[in-house]
């Protein structure tokens, strides 16, 4: 018979063993991806460990481009960065001021607006796809950056998060700032935001990540390869021109994954915090 501490030790060991096994399943596709992007094409399908390391796929990715122009992949990375960054800044900026007004100011229709924001979050994205596309046609924004980011510039979710957090900031700080003659905008950016570092980071990273990953909307509003974000360019190339070049596909997938992984590494505790606060977008 095992005594109590022995059986406790055994069960703890089993717990770690199970967790580690599960973790291998989670991480394996990443390991495979990175290795595959570095091995000769012939080995992608049937070998895990490459016989030699090669950068040929990355060289292809960065040199593709008709006659002397920059590689479409480099441009696509740039496009992704532009669209994701603008959206992130905008969601934080407008989320903060709207959230502040809803949490700390008094105005007519305030409760109506609060309820409306909650109501907005119930509507599935599928309802907006087609009419927003038609709107972009009408505005002449197909194949433009603004066409890609404008529908996402303000988020009910981000606004709601800011509003909830701003409620907890002591009123005395706001009163003192007002006595000093601070404008309401200045109060938001000089007092509220610095005090809400974690909410701000959570809103920013989840917005950036969802814009970086976005696929369907970009697929709909961009037809010009020069303007496509990386996700769409890679998606279309994989289905089209480079469908028989797995090396290029995997190298592209690695390039699409790494920035978000880096973001995840640097802001890891905010990812967990953001998710446990729930209500985070699925």
């Amino acid at each position: 018979m095992l005594n109590r501490s022995q059986s406790k030790f055994l069960s703890l060991t089993a717990t770690y063993a199970l967790l580690a096994t599960g973790l291998i399943f989670i991480i394996f596709p990443y390991i495979w991806m990175v290795l595959a992007s570095l091995k000769p094409s012939a080995e992608i399908y049937n070998r895990l460990i490459p016989t030699r390391i090669t950068l040929e796929h990355y060289r292809m990715v960065f040199s593709l481009g008709s006659t002397g122009s920059t590689s479409p992949f480099v441009r696509a990375i740039f496009n992704s960065l532009v669209v994701s960054s603008i959206t992130t800044l905008s969601v934080v900026f407008f989320g903060a001021i709207t959230g502040y007004a809803l949490a700390r100011l008094r105005f007519k229709g305030q409760n109506l607006l609060k309820n409306f924001i909650l109501f907005q979050m119930l509507f599935p994205i599928v309802l907006f796809l087609i009419p927003r596309f038609l709107l972009m046609i009408r505005l002449g924004w197909i194949n433009t950056y603004q066409g890609m980011f404008s529908p996402f510039m303000m988020s009910a979710w981000g606004t709601f998060l800011f509003m909830q957090f701003f409620k907890t900031v002591p009123q005395s700080l706001i009163d003192a700032a007002r006595l000093d003659g601070c404008s309401e905008l200045r109060i938001v950016f000089r007092i509220m935001l610095p005090l809400s570092k974690s909410v701000t980071i959570i809103v920013a990273i989840f917005t950036f990540m969802s814009m970086w990953d976005e696929f369907l909307w970009y697929l709909i509003v961009t037809k010009d390869y020069n303007l496509m974000p990386l996700s769409v360019l890679l998606g279309l190339y994989t289905r089209g021109e480079y469908s028989s070049y797995p090396g290029i596909q995997v190298a592209g997938a690695t390039l699409l994954t790494l920035p978000i992984l880096a973001l995840f590494y640097f802001f890891r505790e905010y990812f967990t915090k953001g998710i446990t606060m729930t209500g985070v977008k699925g």
């Binding site: 991806m33 990953d213 996700s231």
Partner: peptide, 16 residues
Amino acid sequence: GYLMSYVSAGVAYSIV
């Protein structure tokens, strides 16, 4: 570690 798969981009893991 378990959250790592969540941050993967749709197009990327579909290719993989």
